[in-house]
């Protein structure tokens, strides 16, 4: 069968409309159940079937691709795709603007400079950090997911290894973020660096893993690999 451009457009439009109708229908059903039971989610419909995303797609129209730095004092901070757009605070509620301010302040305290980019081609924090390190004039980079998970990386290391990893986002504080900035800067200076002490909460998974999954879905659905890494001055 021959498929003209026009036919494809017609089909697409019909399908999209149908999907929209389905979504509205489903929402109406959920609302009805919620009304009847007085409290949404407690009883009634126990399926999210039909829902296709968490947040609408953000447009990065007009964004500027980040360039490789040449300043040997520079550390690139690569933030997640939903950072300060769809997600504004970490999994434990620390505002992302404060996170960024503290990492930057830590870097400056040690006499180095920082540059923030948004990573739109991966939401894996190891790769986010490694790509930032490769973009960075010093070869040291920091990756920060919107939920708060952070890695300090160096451009010539394997992707899944790192200089320092902070895997338990719910345990992070602003002080930790400042120390991360400081330590990253000390790696640039080639000092003998004492890694930030590990912290551990063995119940963190029970309390936070589902939220972490949802936040990661929000981050991942905002990826825009064509754009790669973009300048991010918020």
């Amino acid at each position: 069968m021959e498929m003209s451009e026009q036919l494809i457009q017609v089909i697409t439009r019909t399908v999209v409309e149908q999907l929209k109708n389905n979504e509205e229908l489903r929402n109406a059903v959920v609302r009805r159940y919620a009304d009847r039971n007085g409290q949404n989610g407690r009883t009634g419909v126990s399926s999210l079937a039909g829902k296709t995303r968490m947040r609408p797609k953000h447009s990065y129209e007009g964004s500027v691709r980040a360039q490789k730095g040449t300043d040997p004092k520079e550390i690139v901070i690569g933030v997640g795709a939903a950072f300060q757009t769809e997600i504004t605070s970490t999994i434990c509620g620390i505002p992302l603007s404060d996170v960024l301010a503290n990492v930057k302040a830590g870097i400056e305290e040690e006499g180095m400079t920082s540059r923030v980019v948004k990573v739109l081609d991966t939401s894996d924090v190891g790769f986010m950090a490694l790509q930032s390190a490769k973009l960075s004039g010093s070869g040291i980079g920091i990756g920060i997911q919107s939920k708060g998970t952070t890695v300090i990386h160096q451009k010539d290391l394997y992707p899944l290894t790192n200089l320092e990893l902070f895997p338990q986002a719910p345990l992070m504080t602003l002080d930790t973020y400042r120390k991360i900035g400081r330590n990253a800067a000390r790696y640039v200076k080639g000092e003998k660096v004492t890694p930030i002490e590990s912290v551990n909460d063995p119940m963190v998974r029970a309390k936070f893993q589902v939220k972490a999954a949802l936040m990661h879905i929000i981050e991942t659905e905002q990826l825009d690999p064509e754009r790669g890494m973009i300048v991010w001055d918020q």
């Binding site: 399926s47 999210l48 079937a49 296709t52 029970a206 309390k207 936070f208 589902v210 939220k211």
Partner: peptide, 14 residues
Amino acid sequence: NKDGFIDEWPEMGC
């Protein structure tokens, strides 16, 4: 009740 529970959501693999 401190544990995390979520409804089935096939579109997200949940």
